[in-house]
Amino acid sequence: MAKYNLTVNGKKYTVDADPDTPLLWVIRDYVGLKGTKFGCGMALCGACTVHLDGQPIRSCSTPVSTVKTTNKITTIEGISNNTDHAVQKAWIEAQVPQCGYCQSGQIMSAVALLKTNPNPSDSDIDEAMSGNICRCGTYPRIRKAIHHAAELMKDSGNSTGK
């Protein structure tokens, strides 16, 4: 066991964990944020996607020991205070989720995509989002919502669309 200082959604946490504990379980069971989900444990499905300094990573396959104190971790709970990020607004508009279990990961991937590519084509979306499985099959709506979020962000002139 070792102590780790983590910054999650702007808050500092100190956790005492086994060094190879995946960041996913640290976020869920030590920090207590349950929005990030376990799906496969092998970085195959994307349900556990969070941002490390703005980059999407698979937290199920990221040992906590590899996360630096200076790294900023963002989870689904940290992308907006009032469920009003452009991507969230677009997700509501398109009524994307069915069971909803994969959607935290889908949204984290979409937010990261739009940060680097504010006007993605269908194939850009395919490339950025194909690591995220949705077993319910919400893909057509995810595509639509990402295009819509891009428009909202353009209209508001910032990366959150607020």
Binding site: K34, T36, T83, W91, V96, S104, I107
Partner: peptide, 19 residues
């Protein structure tokens, strides 16, 4: 009619069994 649980499923607050 928009589904009432959708906001909770996109901000991490929906409670699933595993939670």
């Amino acid at each position: 009619v928009p589904r009432p649980e959708i906001p909770s499923k996109i901000n991490g607050t929906a409670v699933f069994g595993i939670d």
